[in-house]
Design a protein around this nucleic acid. Structure first.
Length: 200
DNA sequence: ATATCGATTATCT
DNA sequence: GATAATCGATATG
């Protein structure tokens, strides 16, 4: 699923406002057998969506500050999911900047909108209260995943270890569109996280 | 009841 | 390179 999602487009339609961005970086979480997955503790009120049908939004609060957006995968009872880590903005850029509370001074600032799981959730106005448990495949959905409108040439997929976790470090489950400028973790990926990872 | 820590980011040195 | 922000889940007393 992670591979399938790369290159597709996340769309938010709220009234007349339409946001769209290409999915360029995701991570797979494998369910109960994956120590880094929220589902590893079994079904709880927080992660219940993961154990339901595929195609639903799992949204949770991290570090008390940001939301992370996932889509449930696999059949009912199996809690696999895909975390959205970075997008390439296509439409509704001004609205995204407003949601993020930043001022764009040039194309150079675009990655600040949607490069990183917390950033993209904020840009799309994704919250647990609003979106957790929503069916992303419903015709009435405010949030969904669609095909690219313009022809899109995939550059190829690169696979790396997942970022920012302390369990199951090193499992190759992060998928990115090779060379895409909107992939997260640009300059400082090597320091605090790298040190912690090295100890484990 | 209290402490610790996280699937993060912004900001300061 | 280091740390604050901030809240909820989980561990510890």
């Amino acid at each position: 699923m992670a591979r399938e999602l790369l290159g597709k487009v996340l769309v938010r339609q709220a009234g007349r406002m339409r946001l769209a961005a290409r999915i360029v970086e995701v991570e797979a979480y494998l369910g109960e057998k994956d120590p880094a997955a929220h589902a590893s503790v079994g079904k709880t009120a927080r992660n219940a969506v993961l154990f339901g049908l595929p195609g639903f939004a799992y949204v949770y609060l991290v570090y008390g500050t940001y939301y992370c957006f996932n889509v449930s995968c696999e059949r009912e009872g199996k809690a696999g999911c895909v975390l959205f880590r970075a997008l390439e903005p296509l439409a509704g850029i001004d609205e995204m900047a407003q949601s993020r509370g930043i001022l764009l001074s040039g194309p150079r600032d675009l990655p600040k909108l949607t490069s990183g799981p917390g950033r993209l959730a904020q840009a799309f106005g994704i919250t647990r209260g609003r979106d957790n448990g929503c069916d992303l495949t419903s015709p009435h959905a405010s949030l969904w995943i669609g095909r690219s409108e313009k022809a899109f040439r995939a550059t190829g997929i690169q696979v790396t270890p997942r970022i920012g976790i302390t369990k199951a470090v090193g499992w190759p489950l992060r998928y990115i569109l090779s060379g895409n400028a909107f992939v997260s973790g640009g300059s400082r990926q090597s320091s605090p996280r790298g040190l912690r990872a090295a100890k484990n």
